[in-house]
Simulated scan of single mutants.
Amino acid sequence: MGISLQKGQKISLDKEAGSTLTRIVMGLGWDAGQSNKGGFLGGLFGGGGETSIDLDASCLLFDEAGNLVDAVWFRQLTSRDGSIHHTGDNRTGEGAGDDEQIQVNLQAIPGNVKSLVFTVNNYTSQDFSQVANAYCRILNGANNSEIARYDLSCQGNHTAMIMAKVYRHNNEWKMHAIGEVGQGRTFDQLLPQIQPHL
């Protein structure tokens, strides 16, 4: 079990993994929503069924100057250089374990890429307080052991989160847990908010 990340915390991925990391996986999981949370009122207004919740994991690649070089998300499942791959869009959150994964080969990331920023957006626009058991985590891709986890089950009216930045520093990959909430169905709506973290 990895460390539970707090907003703003910085960790060395190599140190947490116990060895030099060559591959990491960002996992995103959540449970299908229940629309009967309104109790009596929910029953009155036809609650009781499942609500469709579609969270989306994205990985954004930035260069030294903070320019967006590439993006891996549900509309582009593999980075142009082939170093990052998204396993596919899950639109319901059904099933156990990670509902979406982004697999990163750190050794194959082009030299001009300084940082990777992982985001989560709710494409169906419910705020995160309505999403059950939502989390994102970083795994060591070599053995699938969890390095770090961020629980998204925050109460609030936000529909997106800038999860973390993984960046090169002195020939080592480090991770900064950003944990900043925002609004937006897709990652591009978060770009102005991401810029100060680059």
Score class of each variant (00 low, 15 high):
128 F>Q: 03
106 L>G: 02
37 K>C: 01
56 D>A: 04
122 N>C: 15
105 N>I: 02
160 A>M: 09
71 A>K: 01
119 T>Q: 04
38 G>L: 09
58 S>R: 03
76 Q>K: 13
101 Q>A: 14
157 N>H: 14
132 A>C: 12
100 E>T: 11
81 D>Q: 11
37 K>W: 06
125 S>Q: 14
48 G>D: 06
156 G>E: 11
140 N>C: 01
50 E>V: 06
131 V>I: 15
135 Y>R: 09
172 E>R: 15
49 G>V: 02
119 T>K: 07
39 G>R: 07
121 N>Y: 07
138 I>R: 00
167 Y>E: 07
70 D>F: 06
172 E>G: 12
73 W>G: 00
162 I>S: 08
167 Y>A: 08
36 N>F: 02
116 L>W: 01
71 A>N: 09
148 A>K: 01
138 I>S: 05
52 S>M: 13
50 E>Q: 13
157 N>F: 05
98 D>Y: 10
87 T>S: 13
84 I>E: 02
93 G>N: 08
70 D>N: 12
54 D>G: 04
161 M>T: 15
43 G>N: 08
165 K>Y: 03
85 H>I: 07
99 D>F: 07
38 G>Y: 03
155 Q>Y: 08
74 F>V: 12
34 Q>H: 11
50 E>S: 14
111 G>A: 15
68 L>V: 14
60 L>S: 02
69 V>W: 04
166 V>C: 01
42 G>N: 00
87 T>M: 09
42 G>R: 08
85 H>Y: 06
107 Q>I: 08
99 D>R: 01
70 D>A: 09
37 K>R: 09
48 G>W: 01
168 R>Q: 11
86 H>C: 00
75 R>E: 14
121 N>W: 07
172 E>P: 08
130 Q>S: 10
106 L>R: 01
35 S>P: 00
84 I>T: 00
108 A>I: 10
122 N>A: 13
121 N>S: 15
73 W>S: 14
49 G>W: 09
98 D>T: 03
44 L>E: 07
143 N>F: 07
157 N>R: 11
92 T>C: 05
79 S>L: 02
73 W>N: 14
65 A>R: 11
137 R>P: 00
103 Q>G: 06
36 N>W: 08
162 I>F: 01
67 N>V: 13
50 E>F: 13
40 F>M: 10
69 V>I: 11
45 F>A: 02
63 D>P: 13
126 Q>Y: 12
165 K>L: 04
91 R>M: 03
152 L>Y: 04
